[in-house]
Design a protein around this nucleic acid. Structure first.
Lengths: 241, 241
DNA sequence: CGTAGTTTTGATGTCAGTCAAAATGTGTGG
DNA sequence: CCACACATTTTGACTGACATCAAAACTACG
């Protein structure tokens, strides 16, 4: 790991308002930036951390994307979430100090490393930072609740539609197009995440294309009728990512 | 709400080690106990808080049990969790300051009220308390992950078996019997929580009884073969409650 | 004892899973 | 640049687990 400390971090980062610095004052952001360590970019399939590893740092995504999954003794895996730029990863370790899931890069990705000991010291000094971390933890819990709703009581079609809509909402919030984006995950990952099989995912995507809701060429998604997509999702707009 | 302040709280509470005071020193527990407010016991069906309410306090369960659920604009509900003595409720509000779910008593239940403003002040003074809250938040996230795994990739039988086993484990941890307990929730609640229908829950319970795993008379559960139950759950022992 | 709520049981239907194979895409070495 | 191997995705036929619909049995409570 490359440990270049870099005090200009955060202040000039376009993701600052979607990340830890949100709500902090300029001087506080500077203090936060000072503890951030660098790490060389990760390639597709490279692990950020493994389930069971001791958690010494949290990680914020600068670019790229990740998937987190839990695996049990029999090698069965369940994807817990996908993470896009601005997301904070590693919060699941707060109970035991060890990561409860493994996290792997879906594409070439860059992260900021936040050493826990330094972060904790800083939290004690900056109440607003502690508050922001607590807020992010609360957000994670609320997002997990939305995942539970999706998994428990939605059809395959609704699951897929919700998944696409959430990506769209996340990308537009990050300043990208909400009608055209690339899936960084495989069908297998989507299926596992949504509690479906890969064949069902494929068929539902085909159906959505037939109905004129989207156009899909491999990883490339074009949303043709966003309002129809929203109608399919219906009622609530869960924040599953 | 009855606001009797009670400084002997926590210190003599048999649940202290399953609750917020865990890991604190005696003097710190005293400080924590000093901010706890009383509230008259809740009856079956009484709400502790409603989705959307501003969160001014967290709640710890002294006795009884609760269910939390999210409802959407169409009145559809999803139960997010059941809470037993020692559990801390209201953490889902940390993102926005408002509760994201409604919480209702399943039986006559008593709670400790922890005013957020006082709790936050105390956290700033007692780092160990802040740490413990963070730990509990991490635990909540890890438990939600287990729920996600259960909902996504388990059969009806595995879901029911896991549900019963978790109740058993929780009750034994609290000093009760692990082979005989009462379900405080209706079949409908279990079904909703597990993403099943009430009929499927009923049939699976009947099957478990036929196989000699349990005996069930209405709400009364007797586990006849705990090791068989564990075998049905298999691999991981998720902490879904 | 009667009404309403809850749970169980039975008959039938369907959505998504499974199995299998074809089609498409991706990477590597010659 | 092509050929080959391998991974991923799509499509089709069939199956099965759970949902749905319907009604009976059981509980509780005034």
């Amino acid at each position: 790991m490359d440990h270049t400390s870099s005090s200009s971090y955060c202040i000039e980062c376009r993701l600052a308002n979607f990340c830890l610095p949100y709500g902090l004052e300029a001087s506080e952001i500077g203090q936060l930036a000072a503890i951030i360590k660098n790490k060389r970019p990760l390639q597709v399939g490279e692990f950020l951390y493994l389930q069971g590893d001791q958690c010494l740092s949290l990680f914020a995504i600068k670019s790229g994307s990740f998937r987190s999954y839990v695996s049990n003794s029999e090698g069965m895996e369940q994807i817990i979430g996908f993470y896009l730029p601005g997301a904070l990863m590693g919060l699941d370790s707060f109970q035991s100090g060890h990561f409860t899931c493994s996290t792997v890069a879906l594409e070439t990705s860059a992260v900021c490393v936040l050493p826990l000991n330094l972060l904790n010291e800083l939290c004690a000094q900056i109440p607003r930072l502690q508050l922001q971390i607590t807020r992010i933890l609360g957000k994670e819990i609320a997002a997990d609740h939305d995942k539970i709703i999706l998994l428990a009581h939605r059809s395959a079609q609704e699951k897929i539609a919700t998944f696409l809509l959430m990506l769209s909402l996340r990308y537009v919030a990050l300043g990208f197009s909400d009608t055209q984006f690339n899936l960084s995950m495989r069908r297998q990952d989507i299926a596992n995440f949504l509690g479906l099989t890969i064949e069902t995912v494929s068929r539902q995507l085909t159906d959505l294309a037939k109905d004129g809701v989207v156009t899909i060429k491999q990883r490339d998604v074009q949303i043709k009728d966003l309002s129809l997509l929203k109608a399919l999702v219906g009622h609530c707009l869960p924040s599953i990512l």
